[in-house]
Amino acid sequence: MLIKHWLVLKTYSLIITILYSLALATVCLIKVDKLVEEVHIQNADKIFHFSAYFVLAILWYVTLFFQFKINKNKSIIYAICFSVVFGIIIEVLQGAITTSRQSDINDVFANTLGALLATLVIYIKNRILIKKI
C-alpha cells in the first residue's frame, strides 16, 4: 500500500506540491484566532510551522527530483532554499498585509528547522539506499 502511495506522489508531485504550497500560504495568511484559542497545546503554533515546512521541503524535493529530473543533491538544496525563502516571505506578508496576524521570527526558525530536518531525513534516506546498492 505504501508503494502505491509513493507512486501516486511521484506521478502527481508537481500538482500536490503546488496545492500544498498554496494551502499553506492561505492558512498562514487568513485569520485563525478562534482556532488558535481552542488549541491549548504549548507551542502548538511552532509545532505546526515545523511540521508544515518539514512536509513542504519533502514535497519540493520529490517534485524537483522526479518531475524536473534534477539530481538528488541539487534537489535537496533547492527544496530547502525554496522552503526557507517561502517561509520568510509568508512571515513578511503576515506583518505587511494582514490585520489579524503578525510576523514572528520564531516562526521563521521553526519553519527553517522543519525544512532542515526534512533535508537531513532525505539525505540519510539517500545514503542508506546507495549503500544497499
Rank of each mutant, 00 (worst) to 15 (best):
F82Q: 04
R101A: 10
K132D: 00
V84N: 03
T11E: 15
T63P: 02
A23K: 02
L120D: 01
F54D: 04
S83V: 07
L24H: 09
Y53H: 13
S21T: 14
K132R: 14
Y12A: 01
T98R: 07
I89G: 12
S21C: 11
A57W: 11
A79W: 14
E37Y: 12
T63F: 15
Y78T: 05
A52Y: 07
Y61Q: 00
F86M: 03
I16A: 05
W6E: 14
C28Y: 03
K46W: 08
T119D: 01
V32C: 09
I15P: 00
I97Q: 02
L35V: 10
G95F: 05
L2G: 06
I88N: 09
L19C: 13
F82P: 04
N126R: 09
R101C: 02
G114Y: 13
K34F: 11
T63L: 09
K125E: 08
A25E: 09
L9M: 06
L93W: 06
K72E: 10
A25L: 03
S100W: 14
V121E: 06
L19Y: 15
T63V: 08
T119M: 14
R101F: 05
T119G: 14
L2V: 01
D104K: 03
F86G: 07
I90E: 00
F82E: 05
I15L: 11
I105N: 03
L24W: 08
N73V: 09
V8S: 00
N43P: 04
N73K: 06
I130M: 04
S100H: 15
K10A: 03
K74W: 13
H40W: 01
M1D: 03
L19P: 11
A96E: 10
S75G: 11
I3E: 15
F86N: 04
N126S: 12
